[in-house]
């Protein structure tokens, strides 16, 4: 088992945004995550890679407590966001999710206008004092998602009418609009064509300046392109975690090597 000390000695303690220790997740009797320990850095893109069913999405969904919506899911261990245990009973999951945004595999814009899609989070969290304020937040979020120029003249049109890549960037804008600290992305490009994918990847690179981004991906090329840190999951274990360059050029574990060279997966 890989030990996390290498990372923690390499970076100073304040840079760790999310730290997980001894996290185990069960769906009913089936154990999906086995004893994961990891420190995810602020202002960094961290990629989770691994074969299907290895638990990387499950672990991602622990970070904003989305697994709470699944009745049979049970989680043990500790996940801390800025030192605060997010599974503490005093933590409101609804508030947590405003701090930890999420973008899903399939673009899922609400059946509302483009403007209302982006304004939804700020509205329910009361982030805008007035209409002008809200307009500003929406514009900033759409600019942040590199979508503003394409949609600024049709903000009242339904978000579902955009193309797939635009819809995904709309969903990113929607997540960004609540000014989260962490952005979780669950295979955000798997439903997109190559051009839309490269646009979203470019966007992810820019998002790194302001957020801690965690991205689950099936594409090792994508992980290599966008991330600075990579975590390799296999059969519910976190096998290896380190700098992306190291993982792809000098993997420590034989399973990691087997995966990135295409022998398992």
């Amino acid at each position: 088992m890989y030990d996390t000390t290498r990372t923690e000695t390499a970076v100073s303690q304040q840079d760790i945004k999310i730290s997980a220790s001894n996290v185990q997740v069960f769906y009913g009797d089936k154990q999906a995550i086995k004893d994961v320990n990891v420190g995810i850095l602020d202002k960094t893109v961290t990629a989770f890679i691994g074969p299907s069913g290895c638990g990387k999405s499950t672990f991602l969904r622990c970070i904003n407590r989305m697994n709470d919506t699944i009745d049979s899911a049970r989680i043990q261990g500790e996940i801390r966001l800025d030192g605060q245990d997010i599974y503490d009973r005093r933590v409101d999951p609804v508030q947590l999710r405003a701090r930890v945004g999420m973008v899903f595999q399939k673009p899922n814009p609400f059946p509302k206008s483009i403007y209302d899609n982006v304004a939804y989070g700020p509205r329910i969290h009361g982030l805008a004092r007035n209409k002008a304020d809200l307009d500003g937040i929406v514009e900033a979020a759409l600019r942040g998602a590199a979508l503003w120029n394409e949609v600024k003249d049709r903000l009242a049109e339904p978000g579902t009418g955009l193309s797939g890549g635009q819809q995904q960037r709309l969903c990113i804008a929607r997540a960004v609009a609540t000014s989260p600290e962490v952005l979780l992305m669950d295979e955000p490009c798997s439903a997109l064509d190559p051009i839309a994918t490269s646009q979203v990847e470019e966007l992810i690179d820019q998002l790194r300046e302001r957020y801690s981004v965690v991205i689950v991906t099936h594409s090792m090329q994508q992980a290599a392109r966008v991330s600075q840190k990579t975590a390799f999951f296999h059969l519910g274990n976190l096998v290896e975690y380190g700098d992306t360059d190291d993982i792809f050029t000098r993997p420590q574990d034989s399973r990691t090597e087997a995966y990135i060279s295409g022998r398992i997966g």
Partner: peptide
């Protein structure tokens, strides 16, 4: 996915129903 989208934005269950599921 719409339900998850709203919940991931920090909407409560009733907000999800009222603002997202119901219009859909």
């Amino acid at each position: 996915s719409l339900r998850d989208g709203a919940i991931a934005l920090g909407a409560t269950r009733s907000e999800t129903v009222l603002n997202v599921l119901f219009p859909a």
